[in-house]
Nucleic acid binder design. Structure first.
Lengths: 105, 105
DNA sequence: TTTCTTTATCAATTTTTTTTGATGAATGAA
DNA sequence: TTCATTCATCAAAAAAAATTGATAAAGAAA
């Protein structure tokens, strides 16, 4: 046996460590939150204004309220933005800066 | 009119620039490619070994061939990895390093 | 040649995500 | 109070992504 189709000795299971499951899941969650052009634009807007409410996203992006709330919630759940409520308004901010640069090149 | 529910003057359409559409789409594509724990692990493996073939991913991740090929193709299409074929083998490498650090924070 | 290995891709199904319009809660204005 | 505004969330439908098993191409081994 040991019929060798490979030029190079093949890597065996366990020889290269994996990330802990929850770590891989966390990274994937952040990436997933940024995986839509609408949410990329939302982050980009917040990089410029630091504080925007739901209705401002509606106006700046030309999208309906329901859609805007949906996408903001995904950014919120991923910990990319924070939400603060004043009266009837919800104000969103970036949790940490430079999120987009990271994806860039 | 001008009934003002806001404390602060509201941002008007066009006052804050958006990213060019294709730019936003490109960033979203990269993020989407990294939005699955399996693909996060694949990138992590390549950060350690620099060169792995499909069947090595199968072994290291404990996944079937079809699934592995599917996920590798998504990384390939997003430009995150490259593929080089030698004989019947496909060898994958990272196109650029430090992809995961970027998501980290 | 025949057989075995590696691999990509296909089609069908399941699962997840996104969109859309509607509802209702909470607050400000009149 | 009554009406208007902001907003999150719900449910249904549509769209996109992931899983699974099967097929076939191409190269290596016997």
């Amino acid at each position: 046996m040991n019929s060798c189709y490979t030029e190079i000795p093949r890597v065996k299971k366990g020889e290269v460590p994996l990330l802990p499951e929850d770590r891989a899941f966390r990274l994937a969650t952040v990436a997933k939150a940024l995986s839509d052009p609408i949410r990329i634009q939302m982050v980009y807007l917040l990089e410029q204004r630091s504080d925007l409410c739901t209705c401002e996203f509606e106006e700046l992006l030309g999208l309906g309220q329901s859609k805007v709330s949906y996408h903001l919630k995904i950014l919120l759940d991923a910990g990319i933005v924070t939400r603060e409520t004043h009266g009837t308004w919800s104000h969103y901010r970036l949790q940490k800066s430079g999120v987009l640069d990271k994806l860039n090149s």
